[in-house]
């Protein structure tokens, strides 16, 4: 600190101060504006990550997404999809695609965390896009589940079901159950809009609101149903099936016992 104070009368001090002020304004601005874009890109990738990622991409992904991820008839361009998209698609096991179908299915994850990180780093260099979210914003215990529940019902429940048990879309597509999805993947799905899911950018649902949604989902997942087994949370259909098969089944077993002759 002493050295700093000694140099404060240096001829370049004013310029340095100006630069610092500019940097600070810039940082605040970028922090503020990126909150409106996507969560600030806190995870910094090294150049090495991107290089490794490029190799992995060329070996595993380029056959569909094209060299340089510019897209082909078999797969879309990944320019500008952002690291979050890669982390979601690869990290949840949807990519690489196992087979053509209405939509990518979840399957065992094909890449290590390290490799996923490298792929994400590479794709992030191709164009600006949503970044992998910050740990802090993913902390479900900080969110308000009641607000999250309201947002979930308005924005998500029509596809994913009010209890997040999933639902059908057209022609074989579907909105998956969210049970067991990690906080990070839920967040990434909202900002990137994978497959046919709409994008919920930060202007639509702010990061804090997204945290509330995650808090709601984690709350209902952890607490389970107070009434006992939830029968898949599928609503009246599974209840009807249950009473016809199990309920009437037990009743019939008793009627047969009741009317049979004792030995």
């Amino acid at each position: 600190m002493k050295a700093l104070s000694q140099r404060r009368r240096h001829p370049l001090a004013a310029i340095a101060l100006l630069l610092m002020a500019l940097l600070m304004v810039g940082a605040i601005y970028s922090a503020a504006s990126s909150a409106n874009q996507a969560q600030a890109q806190t995870e910094s990738f090294s150049a090495n990550d991107a290089e490794e990622g490029e190799k992995l991409f060329a070996a595993n992904c380029a056959s569909c997404h094209g060299l340089g991820a510019s897209g082909s008839s078999a797969g879309p361009s990944l320019v500008g999809v952002g690291a979050a998209s890669v982390d979601f698609q690869v990290g949840s096991g949807r990519m690489p695609l196992q087979m053509d179908g209405p939509q990518a299915q979840v399957k065992p994850v094909q890449f290590t965390e390290e490799q996923t990180r490298q792929l994400a780093a590479y794709v992030a260099t191709l164009g600006a896009g949503p970044a992998i979210p910050d740990e802090e914003i993913l902390d479900a215990s900080e969110g308000d589940p009641a607000n999250g529940g309201e947002l979930f019902r308005v924005n998500c429940a029509m596809c994913h079901n009010a209890a997040a048990a999933g639902g059908a879309l057209t022609r074989g597509k579907f909105a998956p159950s969210l049970e067991g999805s990690s906080e990070k993947h839920i967040y990434e799905a909202m900002v990137t809009g994978p497959q046919n899911m709409p994008v919920f950018n930060d202007a639509n649902i702010s990061p804090e609101d997204k945290q509330d949604v995650i808090a709601f989902l984690k709350t209902i997942e952890e607490q389970g149903s107070p009434g006992g087994a939830d029968l898949g949370s599928l609503g009246p259909v599974s209840e009807g099936l249950f009473i016809w098969v199990a309920g009437l089944g037990v009743v019939i077993a008793f009627t047969v016992w009741l009317t049979s002759r004792s030995s």
Binding site: V154, N201, A203
Partner: peptide, 21 residues
């Protein structure tokens, strides 16, 4: 405005692929 908060929406907020209630 957004459902349920009632806050107004700028055209620039609505990016391609997004849906607002």
């Amino acid at each position: 405005t957004r459902d349920p908060s009632g806050t107004p929406i700028k055209a620039s907020d609505v990016t391609v692929g997004s849906a607002f209630h």
